[in-house]
Amino acid sequence: MTPAPFVVRPVVAEDLDAWRPLWDGYNEFYGRSGATALPEEITESTWARFLDPAEPVFAMVADDGERILGLVHYLFHRSTILIGPTCYLQDLFTVPEARGRGVGRALIEAVYERAADAGAERVYWHTHETNATARRLYDSLADDSGFVVYRH
């Protein structure tokens, strides 16, 4: 049986209940669950930002008409080395049963399109060095900058 086709589209308010399990899955993948889970206030604020046209934070989903298969969150910011905005792809997640169907690729390419429409000269993102499956996809879509991320 051929998997149902999907579309990538911006989130709408009615997507909250379908988006939430993917958001929780993404956070669990990165160790933010149980005692280290994000406070509910952060999730509520994040969702509200996606729906606020004054915010530079956006979300899209891959939808097959029955369910949401994947999510991507991205934002625009200024840079000291470029005139136009820079696009940071912050979160990408697909449900396990949708992996290998091109969902992640389609979500990234949709961000590339939105970034180009906004005049962004660069799209970038981070992933953990051990995320080998995702890195195979990323290596086919972008260059590894070689930079190491530090945070405080």
Rank of each mutant, 00 (worst) to 15 (best):
P96K: 00
A98N: 03
F58N: 04
R114T: 08
F58P: 01
P96A: 00
A48K: 03
L69Q: 09
W19V: 12
V57M: 01
G25Y: 00
Y74V: 07
F93K: 01
R99P: 05
G104F: 10
W47D: 05
A48Y: 02
L75H: 06
I81Q: 03
V111F: 15
R105V: 02
E55N: 13
T36D: 14
T43K: 00
S45K: 14
R114Y: 09
F76N: 04
A18T: 02
W23R: 04
L16T: 07
D24M: 00
N27F: 01
A37N: 11
G104E: 09
W19Q: 07
E55I: 11
P39H: 14
P56F: 08
W23Y: 06
T46A: 11
D17Q: 10
L22N: 04
D91H: 13
L89N: 06
R105T: 11
R67M: 12
D24G: 02
I42C: 12
V57R: 03
S79R: 04
S33M: 09
E113L: 15
A110S: 15
A18G: 13
P53D: 15
Y26W: 00
L38K: 15
G70Y: 01
L82E: 11
R32E: 15
A35T: 12
L75M: 13
T80R: 13
F58A: 06
T46C: 04
A106F: 01
Y74Q: 08
G102E: 01
T46N: 10
T86A: 12
L75G: 08
D64M: 03
Y112S: 14
Y26H: 04
E28L: 11
F50W: 15
A48E: 14
F58H: 15
R49W: 11
E66M: 04
G31L: 03
R99H: 07
N27H: 14
D24I: 02
G31K: 03
L51D: 14
P39Q: 14
E97T: 11
E113C: 15
